[in-house]
Structures are given as structure tokens and as C-alpha cells.
Amino acid sequence: MTTTTPTPPPGAPSPAPGAPSSSAAAAPDRTVAVITGAPEPHPTTWKTFAAMMAREFRVLGRNAPSTFIRSVIQPLLWVFVFTYVLPKIGAAGSFEAGAARGNGTTFSTILLPGLMASMLLMQGILGTTFPLVMEFSWQRTIEDRALAPVPLGVLAFEKMVAGAIQGFVGALIVVPIVLFVHASGQSPHAHVTNWFLLALILVAASMMTAALGLLLGTLMDPRKMQMLFAVILLPATMLGCVYYPWSALHSIRWLQIAVLFNPMIYISEGLRSVLTPGIGHLATWAILLVLVGGAVLIGYLGTITFRRRVLN
């Protein structure tokens, strides 16, 4: 299977795989150079996966300014309004009371894990769904990537990892913003006790949001993309324990139970449990169960729907 040409074409340079055949490249004799003067490829799943990731980074790097602005503006505005403007005009009292029950916790302490989770969800889902929807619609450019010499599951996984990285970075961008943008006396009280757990929660959460993105990107009708914001991202965020800890919902018992079905709260509560452990949070086992289990289960479902969309 390695010989492409049954007979050596006249005048062809001896095809020596691996050896630099600069003469073939320099002389654009198309009939000779195109096939025989080429290095012989030896693809492996890992090499292909790495090359696909390299491609994602090339594109991300090119779009870095716009991606960065997209991930900075929202948390920046939130933090600015809620931890600078509102305290300055004396309107944040009710928030603090409601959120932290008046035990001296600043609102930015609540917001730090909440906004990190919110941006993680947003970037993780969008970073996976948007490219997928584009590649599946119109010219179906996904077909080209699907012809790479790896099982389609590897391609789906690669898409997830690329989205997860964006979610991960999106969450980290929030940290300096919350740390530095606030009125005096409103600084967050964050204190990491378990770096390993923090990393685990961030990675698992990133993968879960990317898995959600994969599932949505392969199920959604591209013409109804706006629905993604209205039906999924907005409710998930507003009811995702971003602006209040889950424990504070005890006074609205039905809501406290209802939001347990929102995967978002496990991200915000998970980050809360490692960043601001002073505030009451969901049990760690429940958080890890949902994040890791969700990443695996949703990722599996997403891979199935992905295969179904690619293959006819």
C-alpha cells in the first residue's frame, strides 16, 4: 500500500521518503513533483489529534483579540456595577444581605466563583457549539475533518477539548478582574485550600460544558442559534447560583430543589467550595459526581449525535 506509483515516471527524482528533495520542490514540474517527490505520511491517532489541536490553537491565536474581548467585557461590567457602582451609591446592601446573610461577606466573594462558573459555561459551550454549527451548515466543511485518518469519536473528543480549553481560560480571565475591580472594602475573600481539587473541578467543569456544547452543536438547528442564549445560557446563568450561593436559596425551598437540575450550579458551587470555603456550599461528592459523571455521560451522548450528523 505504500507504493503510489507503479512505474517511476521519466525524469523523476528518486523518491527518498524523509530525505529533503529540494530539487523537486524548486522545479515546479507539476507532473513529477506532485506525487513522487513527497514525504510519505505515517499517521497515528495521537499525531492526528495533536495536529488538530495545533490547528485550533492557530485559529484561536488568530482570533485572540476578539475572543479576549468577548471573555472580558461581560465579567468586567458585572463586577464594575455590582462591586463598585452599587456599593458606592449605597444600593448593594440588599444584595449582600440576601446573598451572604449579613455575615460580613462581600458580594465580590460571592461573585468570584459565580462569575468564573458563568464564563466557563458560556465560553465552554460557545467555543464548542459555534464552530460545530458553522462546520455542519452550508458547505459542511466538517466532512473534510471527518476524512482525517482517525475514528470520528476522536474528532468529537478533539472538538470538546478545544471548547473546554476556551471555557477554562474564560474562567481564569475572571479572576484578576474580580480581584482588582471593586470599591474599597469590597475585595473578595478567596482562599484556596486544595489546589488539586480546584484543578480537578476546573477541568471537569470545562469538559462538561464542552460536552454540552458538542451535544447542542450536533442537535441544534443552525437557524435557531439565538435560542441557545434565550433557552439555555440565560436561564442556566440566572438560576445557576452565580449571584447567590445555593445555600442562600433555602428560603425558597422549591427553587432550591429545582435548580439542582441545572448543571451550572455544580460549577459555581464547586468553585465556591474550593475558592471561598467560608461560604456554605453543596457537598463536594455531589459536585464531583455531577461534573465528572456529566462530562462522561454528555460527552458520550454528544459523540453519538456527532457521528450521526457526520455520517449519512
Binding site: P41, K47, T48, A51, R55
Partner: peptide, 25 residues
């Protein structure tokens, strides 16, 4: 294929470069 499946986010050279890398070069 019949439809244009070039990677629109990449340049001409990059389209070829990454195809080669997908195949292990």
C-alpha cells in the same frame, strides 16, 4: 467533494500544512 470544504479560517498554505499534519507529517 462537490462543495467547498476548505478550512475557511486558514490560509492556502495552512490548509495544505494542516492536512499534511493530520496525516502524520
Amino acid at each position: 467533494p462537490q462543495n467547498n470544504t476548505l478550512d475557511m479560517q486558514l490560509s492556502v498554505t495552512e490548509n495544505l500544512e494542516f492536512r499534511g499534519r493530520f496525516f502524520g507529517l
